[in-house]
């Protein structure tokens, strides 16, 4: 079995668990490092971003409750989130995120129709990624402002209110609840308008650009902040790379791992982590390592142990199975 096949299985299993298993009484808790949306009826776990925005778990938490049971629960949730992220790193995005799978299907549909993928220039990519930071700051700051009485109380869960996952995932399960405008007051009306417009843009974006939403997803940014403690990580041996560019082509976020780290001919026989490989938008899908046909150029490491190393024979195995074709 190839890593790609394992990943596909994992994505589908997690999609089922995180979207439907709540109906069977299974819940994986509120600390998940992926977009498991609580607005889906019967979801099997909750995205940690929700906890981070809530008055009970994020920066908006009143200091008075920090050492109460509620505060400890919030800390425990954060601790669990950190442990989960440390264990599997950015692979949460590539291997478990239900919305990620949905985006992969959108890309598959585009490929079936032989429609060209949108190519974003480096500048455009950079501009888009700024939104990721804006959303992240927005979801951290607004709860604080609410606590301080400087923002409208209806802005609770500010990011969830405009997150396209809130609208699209329930729709996938046949629930159109959030596909309407909320005329209760101007704040909620604005949020519902932004939600619908943003969701529409994301739907179009994810069809024309593989994993478009991941470029602006604040969860991906939050996970990437813990990069130094990841146990599961990508490794690169720069002195083995032949620069064929396969890794860049199969990367959903087009990170170039074949780019030289330096232009001199100084050779390193020591494994080093490819700084570019751990770019904030990495999905941890390991497509790059699998498709690399140069012996040992890319690999996967769990803790101190190398669990996979790129090779010509593995790449040939993928070809034989017509993966990536």
């Amino acid at each position: 079995m190839t890593i790609r096949m394992l990943r596909l299985i994992s994505q589908h299993v997690f999609f089922f668990i995180l979207t439907f298993s709540g109906r069977l009484g299974i819940s994986l808790g509120p600390s998940l490092p992926c977009l498991s949306c609580p607005y889906v009826t019967g979801c099997g776990g909750v995205c940690y971003l929700r906890m981070l925005q809530s008055p009970m778990g994020g920066l908006g938490m009143n200091l008075a409750v920090l050492f109460t049971q509620r505060g400890l629960q919030a800390l425990a949730a954060f601790g669990l989130f950190v442990v989960l992220v440390a264990l599997f790193g950015q692979s949460w995005c590539g291997w478990t995120c239900p919305f990620g799978l949905l985006q992969d299907y959108a890309a598959r549909l585009r490929n079936k129709l032989r429609i060209r993928e949108a190519i974003l220039s480096d500048r455009a990519m950079f501009t888009i990624k700024i939104f990721k930071c804006i959303f992240f700051v927005y979801l951290l700051i607004i709860p604080v402002l609410i606590t301080l009485g400087l923002a409208h109380s209806d802005l609770t869960l500010p990011y969830c209110a405009i997150c396209p996952v809130k609208l699209i995932m329930p729709l996938i399960t046949g629930d159109p609840t959030y596909l309407n405008l909320d005329f209760t007051n101007s704040v909620l009306l604005t949020e519902s308008v932004v939600l619908i417009v943003f969701s529409g843009l994301v739907l179009v974006g994810m069809f024309f650009k593989t994993r478009f939403f991941c470029l602006i997803c604040p969860m991906s940014l939050l996970i990437s902040l813990f990069r130094p403690i990841f146990l599961l990580r990508l490794i690169k041996e720069p002195a083995a790379c032949l620069g064929c560019g396969n890794c860049r082509r199969v990367c959903p976020t087009t990170i170039d791992k074949s780019a030289p780290l330096s232009n001199d001919l100084k050779l390193s026989t020591k494994h080093i982590d490819a700084v570019r490989g751990f770019a904030k938008s990495c999905q941890g899908c390991f497509n790059c390592a699998q498709c690399c046909s140069t012996e040992g150029s890319l690999g996967i490491k769990f803790g101190p142990k190398v669990i996979f190393r790129a090779s010509r024979s593995y790449a040939a195995k993928l070809l034989k199975r017509k993966s990536f074709h």
Partner: peptide, 13 residues
């Protein structure tokens, strides 16, 4: 030249 992995199946891709 070795394996050609493709993720964009349009003619341009």
């Amino acid at each position: 030249p070795g394996p050609v992995f493709i993720t964009d199946h349009s003619f341009y891709g």
